[in-house]
């Protein structure tokens, strides 16, 4: 289990608890958190589950794969802490993570 705090673009905060093994994308979806579209359903193929990771947590996540990198690259607003939430598994290690939603999904 891990606690995940989602911060919407307008500043609204919501904290959810997610099971190990699911993805951040599903954790948001299953808890009705808005701001993620996830058109491809978690296949790392559409980049519409883009999130920004709080700086303190960026280095604690698994590195970005080539596929994720190429999809993130399609987004002109990509930032140094941009990730696709479908590619981040929920583990004990990310308990307490803070996730910022972007203004738009592409």
């Amino acid at each position: 289990m891990a606690k995940i705090k989602f911060v919407q673009f307008d500043g609204t905060e919501e904290t959810v608890e997610a099971e190990n093994g699911t993805s951040l994308m599903n954790a948001a979806f299953d808890n009705g958190i808005s701001g993620i579209d996830a058109d491809c359903g978690g296949e790392c193929s559409c980049a519409t589950c883009h999130v920004l990771i709080d700086d303190a947590w960026v280095s604690k996540l698994a590195p970005i794969s080539e596929q994720e990198d190429s999809m993130l690259d399609l987004n002109p607003d990509r930032a140094s802490n941009s990730r696709l939430s479908c590619q981040i598994p929920v583990t004990e290690e990310i308990d307490g993570i803070v996730i910022q939603m972007p203004e738009f999904q592409y």
Binding site: G41, S45, A47, Y106
Partner: peptide, 20 residues
């Protein structure tokens, strides 16, 4: 329920740039 889960824009790096 998930209306955007369709193939018309393609997926992957060539996904439609003008979809929005």
């Amino acid at each position: 329920d998930k209306p955007r889960h369709h193939l018309s824009f393609g997926f992957g790096i060539h996904r439609c740039m003008g979809n929005r």
